[in-house]
Every structure is written in structure tokens, then in C-alpha cells.
């Protein structure tokens, strides 16, 4: 895939992610251990180490419209395994927040069928909506 990135935008997106996550994106040297350990990797359209690289390059749209940031369930395996001490869990959260802070939901309570609402544990609904709605 070819992506053209204007220089100004490139810096802005990365800086915003760095601000929200408190992480240094430059620390990543693309070893891929995060993706190797990720339990959701098989369901993702962009592997966690690729997300890091895309943010580094400033590819805002690609990252914020990826399925990956919503498949990530914040299990901290990537963070645990990262040899450079990058907290990818925070980076993923920063990306989700950048999407949600545009006053849009990725998944809203209205999307849960009544039957599921009766059966699902409270913990599942609260955590899902905390992560996926604005």
C-alpha cells in the first residue's frame, strides 16, 4: 500500500499519540514481539508493530480506521513482552481515544440486542462501552 503523508500532518498525529499515551514512539525498533504475543493478532488487519510504524509515519486515517485498535482488548501482553519497554497498550488506547474524541462511537449501547442485554454480565457491557463509546 502506498501512503502519501504531508510532513506537517506526520508530526502532528505522532505527537498527539505520544501526548495521550506518554510513550516514546521512536523507542520501537520493529522487532515484532508485540505482534508475536498478541492474542488478537489473527483478527487484526494491521499488526501491533505495524500500528507503531504507521503512527511513526503519521498515517492517521489508516490507524484510526483500522480494525486493530478495536480488536485490542488491553491485555498488556505486548507491553509485557516489549524489549524496549514501550507500553503499546497505552498507544492503542491513545488511538481509540483520538477516534472517540471526535464525538463518535465505535460501538454504542443501541447496538446491543435486548436478548444479549439480559444475559451479558455487567462487567462485559461496562468495559465494552467504556472502551468503544465516547
Amino acid at each position: 500500500m502506498k501512503i502519501k503523508i504531508p510532513l506537517e500532518k506526520k508530526t502532528k498525529f505522532r505527537e498527539k499519540i505520544e501526548e495521550l499515551s506518554g510513550e516514546n514512539l521512536f523507542a520501537c525498533y520493529q522487532c515484532g514481539r508485540c505482534s508475536g504475543g498478541c492474542p488478537g493478532a489473527s483478527q487484526m488487519d494491521m499488526l501491533p508493530n505495524q500500528v507503531m510504524r504507521y503512527i511513526y509515519l503519521g498515517a492517521e486515517e489508516e490507524v484510526l480506521n483500522s480494525k486493530t485498535i478495536w480488536v485490542c482488548a488491553s491485555c498488556y501482553m505486548c507491553t509485557q513482552r516489549c524489549p524496549k519497554g514501550v507500553n503499546l497498550t497505552k498507544v492503542m488506547e491513545a488511538a481509540r481515544q483520538m477516534y472517540l474524541r471526535k464525538n463518535q462511537d465505535y460501538f454504542s449501547p443501541d447496538n446491543i440486542p435486548q436478548k444479549d442485554r439480559e444475559e451479558l454480565p455487567t462487567i462485559a457491557m461496562v468495559s465494552c462501552l467504556r472502551k468503544m463509546s465516547s
Binding site: 492474542p39 488478537g40 483478527q43 480488536v71 482488548a73 488491553s74 491485555c75 501482553m77 460501538f107 447496538n111 446491543i112 444479549d116 451479558l120 462487567i123 462485559a124 457491557m125 468495559s127 465494552c128 472502551k131 468503544m132
Partner: peptide, 19 residues
Amino acid sequence: NECCMSYLTVNHKDIVAER
């Protein structure tokens, strides 16, 4: 010590079922 895919059980039953 791997994740069960947690709250994705709400919007992605299929992913959790496979897990």
C-alpha cells in the same frame, strides 16, 4: 496467561467463541 478477548464478547461473539 493469555487473554480471552474480554469485552469483545459484546460486539464480537465470533472472536470470543473461537478463542
